[in-house]
């Protein structure tokens, strides 16, 4: 992605692109697959917000994102690209998944989509944000997925389910 939006290619752009591909393409899916294998699940069958409403809401969110992106005061070089609209739509779908799904693993996916959207937005700043920040953000993301994977595993073992609606012991 950084390679596509950059006008001129530099070493740093390549490093960030490679790190992104390795982390987001290999490491995170592997961790998630491991969590799914240990927890023995493959699909969220019983969501809080049904599939059709989710689809419609997502589409509405997409339209809203494009509309909002047009109203935002952007620099001239960012007016044409769909980067901001894409980022906003992704953040919205991430939040939707986070709220509308009951299984812990789907919520993790929602969280990842949310983070991806934010990362996409961060690409606007790639000229100015130095590598350290980018690297740190990627690293944190990976650790977060790792930690969440472990907790998912523990919840599965402790409650014998991944349905977060069952997590209701603690309430006022």
């Amino acid at each position: 992605m950084p390679l596509v939006i950059e006008a001129e290619w530099r070493v740093m752009t390549f490093v960030v692109a490679t790190a992104t591909v390795v982390m987001k393409g290999l490491v995170i899916p592997a961790l998630l697959r491991r969590a799914m294998r240990t927890a023995n699940i493959d699909r969220d069958l019983d969501p809080l917000i049904g599939y059709l409403p989710s689809l419609l809401l997502g589409a509405a969110g997409m339209i809203g994102a494009v509309a909002v992106a047009h109203r935002l005061p952007l620099l001239p070089e960012h007016h044409e690209s769909l980067l901001v609209a894409g980022a906003l739509a992704s953040v919205f779908s991430g939040l939707l998944l986070l709220l509308g799904r009951a299984k812990a693993i789907s919520q993790v996916c929602g969280y990842l989509i949310l983070e991806n959207g934010i990362y996409l937005f961060g690409l606007l700043l790639i000229h100015s944000t130095p590598l350290l920040v980018e690297g740190g953000i990627l690293l944190d993301l990976t650790v977060a997925v790792f930690v969440i994977g472990i907790i998912v595993d523990r919840i599965q073992r402790a409650f014998d389910t991944l349905d977060t609606r069952k997590l209701t012991v603690l309430r006022e």
Partner: peptide, 20 residues
């Protein structure tokens, strides 16, 4: 574990928004 999960989910979303 329940408390940790809530902490991760709420805290994680908060921290994601602060990144944005």
């Amino acid at each position: 574990f329940e408390a940790t999960w809530k902490y991760l989910l709420v805290g994680g979303t908060g921290i994601a928004l602060s990144l944005l």
